[in-house]
Nucleic acid binder design. Sequence first.
DNA 1: GCAAAAGTGTTTACAGTACACCCATGG
DNA 2: CCATGGGTGTACTGTAAACACTTTTGC
Lengths: 232, 232
Amino acid sequence: MNPAIDYFKYAITVDNVIFGFSKGELNVLLIERGEEPFDKDWALPGYFVKQDEDLESAAYRVLNELTGLKDVYLEQVHSFGRVDRHPFGRVITVAFYSLIKIDDYKINAASIAKNVKWESVNEVLKMSLPFDHREILEACYTKLRKAVRGRPVGFELLPPKFTLTELQNLYEAILMPQKLDKRNFRKKILSMKLLIDLSETQEGVAHRPAKLFKFDRDKYKEFVSEGFVFDI
Amino acid sequence: MNPAIDYFKYAITVDNVIFGFSKGELNVLLIERGEEPFDKDWALPGYFVKQDEDLESAAYRVLNELTGLKDVYLEQVHSFGRVDRHPFGRVITVAFYSLIKIDDYKINAASIAKNVKWESVNEVLKMSLPFDHREILEACYTKLRKAVRGRPVGFELLPPKFTLTELQNLYEAILMPQKLDKRNFRKKILSMKLLIDLSETQEGVAHRPAKLFKFDRDKYKEFVSEGFVFDI
DNA sequence: GCAAAAGTGTTTACAGTACACCCATGG
DNA sequence: CCATGGGTGTACTGTAAACACTTTTGC
């Protein structure tokens, strides 16, 4: 009944490039692996897909076990299946990236990993990573850079209330080394009418306190349905 | 030595959305399946990935066995792995699209398929397709529509020599229902200096014969390395 | 009063858009 | 000479880009 039985000999993993933004830099979450191969090396978080879970569910599970987070932005990027990419056999991995608000949460190093750390994208690209994790990171970073110009993904990386300067710094951190003009950036972002002025200001800063804004998700959905395209 | 042995129970396939352009319409290549499941149904061409081949190689093999073509534009799009997407077990498929010059080649229905046909994208989207092939087609079509604006992929679908009207028709077929202004289209495409005027004209047409052009691949590569971005 | 970042408008250049008529060929 | 699609230019409009000084707060 099943002539293709010989083909059921592959393993599938998901690998997740988790981006966060902190102190003006775009960061990636790395884990210290707790099993072979590459035990104790720093790597991207990932794990085998289970028999009864979809690819997205698996990526989401990995993220959730690691960070405790739910309702996170997660997007499939690319699959990697080089014949020799895994020493244990034929393992195809599906790469995802996710965007989280770095300051809001504590990471639990519990299940998957011995240890966990945030590291700036620039630093990680200088490190050596196991498997084809470097290629995976590059693919995800490239995709993020493209996505950020055409969809309001940036807001996923910021706390709910943010200043325009923080938003601009985020864009510059993702698009580095490109810099953006302050006045033009503000003009453009405000002209979209997607930010709600909270009529609050920063406190405890040693300079003129900035106004706080939040992103108007509902309005964005409404505009999109009317044909609007986000573009920065 | 291998604690993950239980996970090596999945199958991987590639599915290939092969686009061609003919008579003003964007077409997709469908095969009549020659085996279970869905024997005799019209479907996207695809097959199991073999133990010693990469994902891209597998997609390329499927394409090559079906059309005899080499040196074809092929791009990975997305992976689909819903738990219940295949009746024989857990099968993850990696979707690719490819672009071919439809008139240049004969299709061999030999190996994979009983039978083969070109069908317009619009028609196929009205049909019912096996597995999640509809979703795969939609993902590939969406990706093509995006790609065509930012990279000169359109030329992969045209014969080496083409007229500006043919090129415009191709763009309109991909971007339907959007129409493009003739003068503005020509102005923009010619201003990129990527077309070589062959100083030849059409023959045997019942109207003023159009000039023939070819795409200058080398110049495109050169421009790209200088930071140029194709944009239509 | 000084340091530090927030906030704010105008001008200029370029690219997108809209638009209509004459031309070359085959039949 | 008619039908068919090929080929061409200009004016207008809107958006992107360049650019520098004043304001508010903490210390």
